[in-house]
Amino acid sequence: MSEKNTKQPLTRWVEFFNGAKAIFPLEVGAIPFGIIFGALAVTSGLSPAGTMSMSLFVFAGASQFIAAGLIASGTGIFLIIATTFIVNLRHVLYSATLAPYVKNLPQKWLIPLGFWLTDEAFVVTIQRYQEKDTSPHKHWFFFGAAIFMYINWAAFTFVGIKAGQSIKDPASWGLDFAMIVTFIGMLIPMIKSKSIILAVVSAAVSSVLFNNLPYQMGLFLAAIIGITAGVIGQSIWPSAQEDETNE
């Protein structure tokens, strides 16, 4: 192990650009989602400025989508905000996962990194943190990934706002499926040990059983059950027998 670490550590900007590169495919997957959000939000009755502000200040795709739907159905502000909270609750798990790796970072880093913690930025960043090398600049990887995801989301929301004024029923085109295909592409390479298989299968079954719970609470519950199953699996199959190496 010490052999590998004798290499020169990567510089800040190399980490930054590696992060930007790693998130690129996920940005491609998010493009249709951003466009549809922009189009859907303006056709739901949110003003173009409000739609743009939502992408810039909330920056949480799934909840923005649901908010647009609720606005269209005439739901009150308080209920939309409460729904946003529940839909985004899964991000607590992301923060809890990243926390041990950002121990030594000052607040001026933690605040923007917390704000930019999307599904996509989390997945590429946690993979970087879990690599064995001891680079002191891995948060620059996070920064590079997160800022390009943010710019991408804002830019394609803007395209969607412009398009929304001319296309009807943007959600019916099926383009939102790009997000799911992206997540499938991220998930498959992560499945590389027996305990992860157990965790994933448990989460899958639970997500079906709890699908009728409101506001995506089923998602959160299924993740918790999957994590618990994974931890149990780990005690059944000690890590020495598991193939966890990042080759």
């Binding site: 899964r90 798990l93 992301y94 809890a96 996962t97 599904d119 989390f122 997945v123 946690i126 799911i180 997540f183 499938i184 991220m186 998930l187 992560m190 499945i191 305990s195 992860i196 965790a199 994933v200 448990s202 989460a203 899958a204 639970s206 997500s207 089923g218 998602l219 959160f220 299924a222 993740a223 999957g226 994590i227 994974g230 931890v231």
Partner: peptide, 11 residues
């Protein structure tokens, strides 16, 4: 287990 289970529960 967080990344694989959350993604699974979304997909």
């Amino acid at each position: 287990f967080v990344p694989p289970t959350v993604l699974t529960a979304i997909i």
